[in-house]
Design a protein around this nucleic acid. Structure first.
Lengths: 335, 335
DNA sequence: AAACAAATTGCAAACGTTTGCATAAATCTT
DNA sequence: AAGATTTATGCAAACGTTTGCAATTTGTTT
């Protein structure tokens, strides 16, 4: 339907000016008289012109694209099932758009493990945002030490050579546990895998709160999925009976897995067992009983992630940063 | 840390051949002797070389990028909260990677409404996958009639000038309703907004099943969110009491909203009200009672979407296609 | 009105690939 | 052993922007 794609030169000919002028005008360069600029921008719009990004990226050596890598462990299926990871990708997308950047989506099953090479050397993107630290930080380390502009969503307290933005997981774990204690729970389970960076901090917070209350810690180490949680709690109940009266789950999906196991045995939540999750996904509010949870401010975190990436692109060096969290108090822990 | 980025010419000099040879070797062009090809590929790997995609895209006029647009209505907040949309994006990502394509993520709040221009003319991407028909198909129509390679995830039975891949929503609505009827429900609510393309088909299926059973249809038209469902059912219960014994919800999240409203009033599921959802998200299996649902085969659909896009890129014309669905029978409808 | 400064615009050379065509080397015919 | 094929490589011209510098126009000062 359309005739052949217009290029800058065609537009220039139409307007009777040089391509330099058109180029500058479209980039709103003040070197060009305001009047001419407006006229040319109008013309471009009228002819449905848009710049060939390939050409301009080649010339400027900038892409205005950010690669977002969902960093999965491979041995967990958290990816597809956990709404939280995808939610944060959505937020990052919004934040990037706000800064005029585009989002190239990838996951860690990508072609190469050499992110620096694949994304940056190849000029596919200007920088990288990694979502999730995963258990191994090797790929991240490698990219960072190759000098790639890079930010990670993860646990900011992890010592690292690259900036990490994330929630105060320690505080989250502590708050959740203290909340359970305050609601009368004595034997509180930690449900999650402390081998995972972010969860290990939540676990530390849990431990400190438990110790201060002179209670006994008990960890059920499971994969970050609801089905693993379901099985884990089920098994525990079979083997030892109801030996706990509170659960601090490392994610909401995990909490729901536990909740199912409890409900099936007619164990009352929160009366027999109080329960707190982590993430505050949409479902937390809509489940019955509704799930108390530690809410992560993903929106704010996303903006910070992008800002820090931009700062790096501008040559500044940036630090890790903690984003505030909040306990959302609902029915599952209230007694 | 790294020295200046290598280019093809540098590599050529190192190997003592021309850039043409290196270029062809790296693209595995059989014009080049296998031996030389291997040697050059090795050399490239050793020096951590990777092609400048900007340059090669400029030269070849191909990007190997597909823009995925999450098409939202603007007046609904389905986006961030509905795991289903994001899940399908994840699946599409996997499918694209399988074909060596990359995924540029966007949503309909993007800069321009002129997708053809923004994505294709500008050579940001070779083609577009639209996730969700939304209520208005204007943007899609415009892009399609501009000759853009484009595929839509939506309701394949919608008459359209572009190929739509999606579940058999009519059949899904019918199966769900028939299932509820078979389980003894007499007054079955349809919970969802029939103004929305895909949901309208589900509604048609519902209606046909209801009519064949000589039952009375009743639609509660709400936005596609769990909170809208919660409010909708709550209001109905307040105004008319328990005037129904079955619900066919237009999505799982909607079903959960309804479930909450029912549970709060101690209305038993499935005994007082049987419930079927749509989408079969992870939570359906883990809720209590577990939620019967129509399962959409997102993985298969994603592969088909990509294949159809590739076919278009190859100049073939392609048709809409229905992907099979399946009723997953769980507790919420079983009596 | 000339000389100078400031504001606009144009010229032409990059950016790093790919690829049609020409050439050189190797292999095959007779 | 010399031409005719086949196979392997190199030359050089694109692809469509951006941008330093030069050139032109306009405005200001004396």
């Amino acid at each position: 339907m359309n005739d052949r794609k217009l290029k800058l030169a065609d537009l220039a000919k139409l307007a009777g000016v040089s391509t330099s002028t058109v180029s500058r005008a479209l980039n709103d360069n003040p070197l060009i008289k305001k009047e001419t600029r407006d006229k040319l921008q109008q013309l471009a719009k009228k002819h449905n012109f848009s710049l060939n990004t390939a050409a301009s990226r080649l010339r400027t050596q900038k892409t205005n694209v950010v690669a977002v890598i969902i960093n999965l462990d491979g041995d967990t299926e958290q990816s597809i099932n956990d709404p939280f990871l995808l939610k944060i990708v959505g937020e990052i997308n919004l934040a990037l758009n706000k800064f005029g950047l585009e989002l190239l989506l990838s996951n860690s099953f990508m072609a190469s493990d050499d992110w620096a090479n694949y994304f940056i050397n190849s000029r596919r993107a200007d920088g990288i945002i990694v979502v999730g630290q995963g258990k191994s930080q090797a790929n991240i380390e490698a990219a960072a030490s190759a000098g790639v502009p890079l930010v990670v969503w993860g646990d900011p307290k992890t010592p690292s050579s690259y900036p990490i933005v994330g929630s105060d997981n320690y505080l989250g774990g502590r708050l959740a546990t203290e909340h359970l204690l305050a609601n009368g729970a004595k034997n509180i389970l930690f449900l999650g895998d402390p081998g995972h960076a972010e969860i290990s901090e939540r676990h530390r917070g849990y431990l400190d709160a438990i110790n201060e209350a002179k209670a006994t810690p008990h960890v059920v180490s499971i994969d970050i999925t609801s089905s693993a949680a379901y099985k884990g709690i089920n098994q525990l109940l079979v083997e030892k009976g109801l030996c706990f009266d509170g659960i601090m789950a490392c994610s909401d999906m995990v909490a729901f897995g536990a909740m199912k196991a409890l409900k099936e045995r007619y164990i009352s939540i929160p009366n027999d067992v109080a329960l707190v999750g982590f993430d505050d996904i949409a479902m937390a509010d809509i489940s019955h009983p509704s799930l108390s949870s530690i809410k992560q401010n993903t929106q704010r975190a996303s903006v910070i992630l992008v800002e820090k990436l931009l700062a790096q692109l501008a040559g500044q060096s940036v630090e890790s940063q903690v984003v505030e969290i909040e306990l959302v108090n609902r029915q599952s822990s209230q007694r």
